[in-house]
Nucleic acid binder design. Structure first.
Lengths: 192, 192
DNA sequence: TCGCTTAGCTAATGCCATTAGCCTCCTGGC
DNA sequence: GCCAGGAGGCTAATGGCATTAGCTAAGCGA
C-alpha cells in the first residue's frame, strides 16, 4: 500500500491531461483513478467529487487560456492584437480539446482564483477593444461579440460542425477580418 | 398491462419536452420512461438506446429550428432577413433549452431527414448572404461566421456566461448590427 | 518511540443503460 | 368467430459509475 503521493493539484492536472486524451465528456473518476493507479474512492481524499473536479478543472483551464491570450496580446494593439488573441484562443482550444470545454463552465463564486482567471480573460478583451476606441457599455457588447464569435467557431469546429478541415483555417481568418471591420466601425453599428 | 400506445415519434417528442424541462444533460432514459408511465426497458422497443434517442432528438430539433428560421426569413432580405433569422434562432434556443443543445449534435449520415434539415438551415444562411451579394467560397466563410456568432452567443447565454439578463438583449442587437456591417463590407474584409 | 493524522483500501448502496427472456394484447387471415 | 403470431409491454440480471462508511497502515511530530 505504498503511498501514491497524490494531492489536489496532481489530481486536477492528471484530470486535465486525461480529458485532453479521451474527451471531456468521457472524463470519469473511474478512468482518472485508474490512470493514477489508485482505487476510485481514494480520489475523494483530494477532491469532493466529480462535480468539484470539473469545477477545479475549469479554473485550471480558464487560467491557462487567459495566460495564453495575455501573452498573445502583449505588445500588440488594434487588428494585430485581435488576430493574435483570436488565434491563441483557437490554438488553445485545439491543443486542449478536453480542457477547453471544461473552461466554459461557469466559475464557482466561492473560488477567488477561478473568478480572477475569468476576469483576466475578459479584461484582455476589454484592453483589445480599447485599441479600437471602444469602451463603456459598447465594450460590454463588443466583448460579448468577440467571445461569442470565437467560442462559437471553436465549438462548432470541435464538434465537427464544419466541413473540410482545410477550409476552416481560411474561414477563421475571415472571421477575424470581419470582427476587425465590425470593431472599427462599432460606434456606427450602435445606430443600426 | 394496458398498452401505453407508444411509438418512436411519441417517444422522441416526449424526450424533447422533457429535455426542455429538465435540461439536455439531465435527459435520461429512466426519467423519460417514468414520464411516459412505462418501465425503462420498454423504451427499447421504440429506440435503439440512449445514443439513438439523442440522434433522433437532434434531427427533430434541427428540423424545427430550420423551420422557424425559414419562416423568419420569408419575404425579407438584407439586414431585415439577417435580423429576423438571428432573432428567430435565439428565440428557439431560449424557448427550447433542452432541444437546442441536442440540435448541435452532428447529423447521422444514415438519416436522410436529419441531413436534409441541417442543409435546410445552412441554405437559409446562404440565401440570406445572397442578399448581401456574398456567394461562392466567401459565402462558406460568411455562413460559418454567422453560425459561430449566433450559436456562440446563445450557448454562452444559456450557460450563464454573461452578466445581467437585461443587457443581453442589447448585446444581441449589437451583434446583429455588427454582423450586418461585416457582411455589407465582406469583399473588402477578404483583403484584411 | 509512540500516537495521531491522513492517504490509501474494501464493502455497500444507488442510479443508469443495456440485454435476455417472458407474457399478453391486438390484429389479420381463414 | 377463432386462433396464430407479431409487437409492445414486463421482470430479472449484468455491468459501469459515483458516492459514503468504515477500516488500516504509513509517516510525521512531539
Amino acid at each position: 500500500m505504498a503511498r501514491a503521493g497524490l494531492n489536489p493539484q496532481v489530481v486536477v492536472r492528471a484530470a486535465a491531461q486525461l480529458a485532453d486524451e479521451v474527451g471531456y465528456e468521457k472524463l470519469t473518476l473511474a478512468a482518472l483513478a485508474s490512470r493514477l493507479g489508485v482505487a476510485l474512492p481514494s480520489l475523494y481524499k483530494h477532491v469532493r467529487g466529480a462535480d468539484a473536479l470539473a469545477q477545479k478543472l475549469s479554473a485550471l483551464a480558464i487560467a491557462e487560456l487567459a495566460d495564453e491570450m495575455m501573452t498573445a496580446a502583449a505588445g500588440r494593439s488594434g487588428g494585430d492584437a485581435l488576430r493574435a488573441v483570436a488565434v491563441a484562443y483557437r490554438s488553445y482550444a485545439r491543443r486542449h480539446p478536453g480542457r477547453y470545454p471544461a473552461s466554459q463552465r461557469v466559475p464557482d463564486p466561492a473560488d477567488p482564483e477561478h473568478l480572477a482567471a475569468g476576469e483576466r480573460a475578459v479584461g484582455i478583451a476589454y484592453a483589445m477593444l480599447q485599441g479600437y476606441g471602444i469602451d463603456g457599455d459598447a465594450a460590454v457588447d463588443a466583448a460579448r461579440m468577440f467571445r461569442a464569435a470565437v467560442h462559437g467557431f471553436v465549438a462548432l469546429e470541435a464538434t465537427g460542425g464544419f466541413g473540410l478541415p482545410r477550409e476552416v483555417d481560411r474561414s477563421f481568418a475571415q472571421l477575424i477580418a470581419a470582427l476587425d471591420v465590425a470593431f472599427r466601425s462599432w460606434p456606427s453599428a450602435v445606430a443600426g
